[in-house]
């Protein structure tokens, strides 16, 4: 109750950034994520060459800066510039991860709200599905669906990835909403004559927003790993489109003479998920009122 930590006159964002500046690890993680985001957005301009341009004379070239070509990470078996392919893969993988996370959040939050609003059998039904999803590895369900629809449909794949983690959003939304509705400020507003819409949009949503942001930051690396794993296994993003996962999978065949082909995308994935985990932990400590109060 005495945590009047936020200095008056400063927005929440400024307070957040000030606290980030104190931890070098968080700062590094944020810088990496920003870098990846910029690369993803401006990929076609960042990429040194056309990522699909084939140069059969320069196949499996090691990293070089020769007159023949400027291949920062060398070339693949068709002589395509790997650095450029990596940049494009970053773009696609981030696109899938961001869309996937947002879709999951929207679906989950809506379902959570519905369960908390209607209670009774609706709630029971939702919880049976949530429990089922929580106990079933999502990748298995995704595989079952892909077995029927076939692989290669990118839009469908993004949609499928989006469902990953919906049950966690649903669970926290439902939990936080119920605790607000039952004995908190929400009851006060209802006793003042406020309607359902006011309670949910004006009060509950702003209050659970921080929790949702934290959940998104936890979900994001999971989504990245899911997408890259599936692309790695050959059931996700298919060539000629480049994803960090299928790039790595393909590099596996050249470990003996061109190990960097596999390692480069792997390092990018690792640094991105690690950075997001660090940022997620930090956000949870900063935003989550529960852990904050007990700290």
């Amino acid at each position: 109750m005495s945590d009047a930590t936020a200095p008056a006159g400063r927005g929440p964002l400024a307070t957040l950034l000030a606290s980030a500046a104190k931890s070098p690890l968080v700062l590094l993680a944020l810088i990496w994520l920003l870098f990846i985001l910029i690369v993803a957005i401006f990929a076609p301009w960042v990429a040194p060459m056309d990522y699909q341009e084939i140069d059969l004379l320069a196949r499996l070239a090691p990293p070089s800066w020769s007159a023949r070509g400027f291949h920062l990470l060398g070339t693949d078996h068709l002589g395509r510039d790997l650095a450029s392919r990596l940049v494009m893969a970053v773009q696609l993988s981030m696109l899938v991860a961001i869309f996937g996370t947002v879709i999951g959040a929207i679906i989950g939050v809506t379902i959570g709200f519905v369960a908390a609003r209607f209670r009774g059998w609706v709630d029971d039904l939702v919880m049976v599905f949530v429990d089922f999803q929580a106990s079933m590895p999502f990748v298995i369900i995704a595989l079952a669906v892909l077995a029927v629809t076939g692989t290669g449909n990118m839009l469908l794949f993004i949609l499928l990835i989006g469902f990953q983690g919906w049950e966690k959003y649903a669970r926290i939304t439902r939990g936080m909403t119920l605790s607000a509705v039952n004995h908190g400020y929400a009851l006060s507003v209802r006793l003042l004559g406020g309607g359902t819409l006011r309670v949910y949009l004006r009060h509950i949503l702003p209050n659970i927003f921080a929790g949702l942001i934290v959940q998104m930051s936890i979900n994001f690396p999971e989504t990245v790993i899911l997408e890259t794993s599936m692309s790695f296994l050959g059931v996700g993003i298919q060539p000629p489109n480049a994803s960090l996962g299928n790039l790595l999978s393909y590099g596996r065949d050249y470990l003996l003479n061109a190990w960097w082909i596999a390692v480069a995308p792997g390092v990018v994935i690792f640094l991105t998920t690690l950075s997001m985990s660090i940022v997620g932990d930090w956000l949870r400590d900063e935003l989550d009122p529960v852990t904050r109060r007990s700290a």
């Binding site: 690396p221 996962g245 596996r252 470990l255 596999a262 390692v263 994935i269 998920t273 690690l274 985990s277």
Partner: peptide, 15 residues
């Protein structure tokens, strides 16, 4: 620990 669960297992396996 954080590095461990941020490292995708397919990359760990290849490394």
């Amino acid at each position: 620990s954080v590095s461990g669960f941020s490292l995708p297992n397919f990359f760990l396996g290849i490394l």
